[in-house]
């Protein structure tokens, strides 16, 4: 009994939306901008499709499209994760600073 791959993909798709829905509602509103930046980086997962295109195609068209797609997706992979970390560190910095302040008060 063969199931069409599209149906299997659809199953994965629907369940993943469900997971996404529940996980994202739990994200604190204060971190919605980092959320958007990190989702930018995550959607850059198209880079793996782009890699196949860049490495396994033989025509000039296929290869050019592949290399360009890798480059565009890589902008997001690096840019997305790095800018998210930069933002999140701002949230953490205050944490550490506060603790340091408390320490100095006690001493």
């Amino acid at each position: 009994m063969d199931v069409s791959p599209t149906l299997i993909n659809l199953t994965i798709f629907v369940l993943a939306i469900y997971v996404g829905y529940h996980v994202v509602w739990n994200v604190t509103p204060a971190l919605h901008t980092p959320l958007m930046a990190v989702t930018n980086a995550i959607s850059a997962i198209v880079i793996i499709g782009a890699m196949l295109a860049a490495a396994l195609t033989e025509t000039v068209l296929g290869r050019t499209m592949g290399v360009l797609a890798v480059a565009l997706a890589a902008v997001n992979v690096f840019g997305g994760f790095l800018v998210t970390r930069r933002m999140l560190e701002m949230f953490r910095k205050r944490d550490r600073k506060e603790k340091d302040d408390k320490v100095t008060v006690h001493s």
């Binding site: 798709f13 993943a16 939306i17 997971v19 996404g20 829905y21 996980v23 994202v24 959320l35 958007m36 989702t39 995550i42 959607s43 997962i45």
Partner: peptide
């Protein structure tokens, strides 16, 4: 990954 981002 796409669905996670899409629903987000």
């Amino acid at each position: 990954a796409g669905s996670l981002v899409g629903s987000s």
